[in-house]
Design a protein around this nucleic acid. Sequence first.
DNA 1: CACATCAACTCCTCAGACAACCTGAGGAGT
DNA 2: ACTCCTCAGGTTGTCTGAGGAGTTGATGTG
Lengths: 229, 229
Amino acid sequence: MPLEALRPSPLVEQAAQRLQDQITGGDWPVGTRLPGETTLAKTLGVGRSTVREALRALAGAGLVQPRQGAGVFVIATEPTEDWPARLRRAAVGDVYEVRAMVEVQAAQLAAVRRTDDDVAALRAALEGRRTAAGSGTAAFVDADIALHAAVVAAAHNPVLTDLFTEFVPALRQGLIDLVELLDLRGRDPQPGDARHAALVDAVADGDGTTASRILREEFDETLGQLAER
Amino acid sequence: MPLEALRPSPLVEQAAQRLQDQITGGDWPVGTRLPGETTLAKTLGVGRSTVREALRALAGAGLVQPRQGAGVFVIATEPTEDWPARLRRAAVGDVYEVRAMVEVQAAQLAAVRRTDDDVAALRAALEGRRTAAGSGTAAFVDADIALHAAVVAAAHNPVLTDLFTEFVPALRQGLIDLVELLDLRGRDPQPGDARHAALVDAVADGDGTTASRILREEFDETLGQLAER
DNA sequence: CACATCAACTCCTCAGACAACCTGAGGAGT
DNA sequence: ACTCCTCAGGTTGTCTGAGGAGTTGATGTG
């Protein structure tokens, strides 16, 4: 009975964690049939229902798959990539840098592919950013992100759009911290307005070079400020 | 007892599915406390343990979170985005396009940040690509991806590295299809060797402009070929 | 009004029982 | 030699009953 403690808090989660470790650790590669529930129960020192729930949790995460009468089988060795969590863990600078990479190029594409509807959405988002100038930091950041999202959307690449969406939560918090830290809105309630207007115009005019240059300047500046801290 | 049949196959999965429908369908928004286990058991017409396992499966998928004594709460309305699956579903062209965006910029960064170890890894990967010229398509594509991965790694941004890793599976299959479809290796067993060598040299020399230009040419060419089909 | 107490409710864990099902071995038939 | 059948053992699926532990909101007290 090679185990210790296994006492505090939900036993199910501890059991699931231990099983998952065995899987992600490579002890049980894909295709392996896990020991039976009663065996696992004895090994882990918990009841069979507890083991069952732990296995069910792993099944829900897509790691294992039970087959009645046959056993429980490993079908994946990694819990479905939890990108939002990973981004939350990552350094703000790294996230921002990748975001900059993607968006600079997206702007270029957007200038080529934008439809009239896109342009309308961009102008609306720009207006929204101006309106949000009078609101709190969070609201302003949201409006800013909405504008950038509109640029990305104008590139008409679903993968790109999804990618940007994935970045939004991490970006949002990072930007709120940044704006308040640097007191960006102390002097100017809507910092970078001229630049964002120029960006929208460039995309509308189909001038991808200018659009991406504007964004690059914007991001380089922010990244520089981030690096100073 | 508003239910029908609910007999064949695992009751747990059916119960979980029904609960998930309630959540994704908007009936139970984020923050909602689900009915108690006994209530759900009666409503679904199954035993309590079955309900518990169904809830545990949803918890494993990140949809709900149980709190002892308080209840089970909805914490998300969508099963954690399965990016690999999404990429598999997406059009090859879209995936490739985003990959190009990211990598062109990554090359520029890599030229600035690469260490001597990175350069060694790059040269080794280039050599591996040449060696794989005599092998099958899959092996060649793997070697090609390894080289590009080395470029991305040289940028020293963990978020970027993770992102590229996420793209690899979709990329791999797409590239294999592409190479065989276009018969790229019919005339030249290691297409683009000169260009890749120049890329490695540019990164080694710290010439980011050249590095990213080379990659851009490469990708534009491939994207052009993809567009023709 | 602030605070302590308490009861009802919730999830957590276990044990036991039976049903449904899969797998592999061995025998019967072709 | 091959196929098919049967069967036993093991495995997951499901239910029930019983406590344990924690949270929450109402109640009562000062």
